[in-house]
Simulated assay, not measured.
Amino acid sequence: MPQSRQRLLLDVDTGIDDAVALLYLLATPGVSIEAITCTAGNVGAHQVAANNLALLELCARAGVEVAIGSEVPLEIPLVTTEETHGDQGIGYAVLPPPRCSVSSRNAVDVWLEAARCHPGQVTGIITGPLTNFALALRAEPELPMLLKGLVIMGGAFNYPGNTTPVAEWNMHVDPHAAREVFAAYEGLPYEKLPVICALETTERIECTPAHLEAVAAAACAGPEVVSPDQPEGTRSTSDNAVVACLSDALRFYMEFHRLHGQGYIAHLHDLFAAMVATGEAGITERTVTVDVETQSPLTIGQTVADVAGMWGRRPNARIVTGNDPPAVFELMVRRLSHLARMHG
Rank of each mutant, 00 (worst) to 15 (best):
2 P>W: 03
2 P>G: 08
3 Q>W: 05
4 S>M: 11
5 R>F: 13
8 L>D: 03
14 T>C: 15
16 I>V: 08
18 D>E: 06
19 A>I: 01
19 A>L: 06
24 Y>Q: 15
30 G>V: 03
30 G>C: 10
33 I>P: 08
34 E>S: 00
39 T>A: 14
39 T>N: 09
41 G>L: 04
41 G>V: 06
45 A>H: 13
47 Q>W: 04
50 A>E: 09
56 L>Y: 09
58 L>Q: 01
59 C>T: 10
60 A>T: 01
62 A>H: 10
67 A>I: 05
69 G>H: 04
72 V>C: 09
76 I>F: 13
81 T>P: 01
84 T>I: 14
86 G>M: 07
87 D>N: 11
87 D>K: 15
91 G>I: 09
92 Y>H: 00
93 A>C: 06
93 A>N: 02
94 V>I: 12
95 L>K: 05
97 P>A: 15
100 C>V: 14
103 S>W: 09
116 R>K: 13
120 G>Y: 04
121 Q>M: 10
124 G>V: 11
127 T>H: 07
129 P>F: 05
129 P>T: 07
133 F>V: 11
134 A>N: 03
140 E>R: 13
141 P>W: 13
143 L>E: 03
144 P>K: 07
144 P>G: 02
145 M>A: 13
147 L>G: 02
149 G>Y: 00
149 G>W: 02
153 M>K: 15
155 G>N: 00
161 G>S: 08
161 G>C: 01
161 G>L: 00
164 T>P: 09
167 A>F: 04
168 E>Y: 08
169 W>V: 15
171 M>W: 11
172 H>D: 04
172 H>R: 14
173 V>Q: 00
174 D>A: 04
177 A>T: 05
179 R>C: 06
181 V>E: 07
187 G>V: 12
188 L>N: 03
188 L>D: 06
188 L>Q: 10
194 P>T: 02
195 V>P: 11
196 I>Y: 07
197 C>I: 00
200 E>V: 09
204 R>Q: 15
211 H>A: 14
213 E>A: 15
220 C>I: 09
222 G>E: 03
222 G>P: 12
226 V>R: 01
227 S>P: 07
228 P>N: 09
229 D>Y: 15
233 G>A: 11
234 T>V: 06
234 T>K: 10
236 S>K: 09
238 S>I: 01
241 A>D: 15
242 V>W: 03
247 S>I: 00
253 Y>S: 13
255 E>W: 11
258 R>T: 15
259 L>T: 14
261 G>Q: 01
264 Y>F: 14
266 A>W: 01
277 A>V: 00
278 T>L: 10
278 T>V: 02
279 G>E: 00
290 V>D: 03
290 V>N: 06
295 Q>V: 14
295 Q>T: 15
298 L>H: 13
298 L>A: 15
298 L>I: 14
299 T>N: 14
300 I>T: 10
306 D>C: 09
307 V>S: 06
307 V>Q: 07
308 A>K: 11
316 N>I: 08
322 G>N: 11
328 V>P: 00
329 F>A: 09
336 L>P: 12
338 H>D: 15
339 L>V: 00
340 A>C: 03
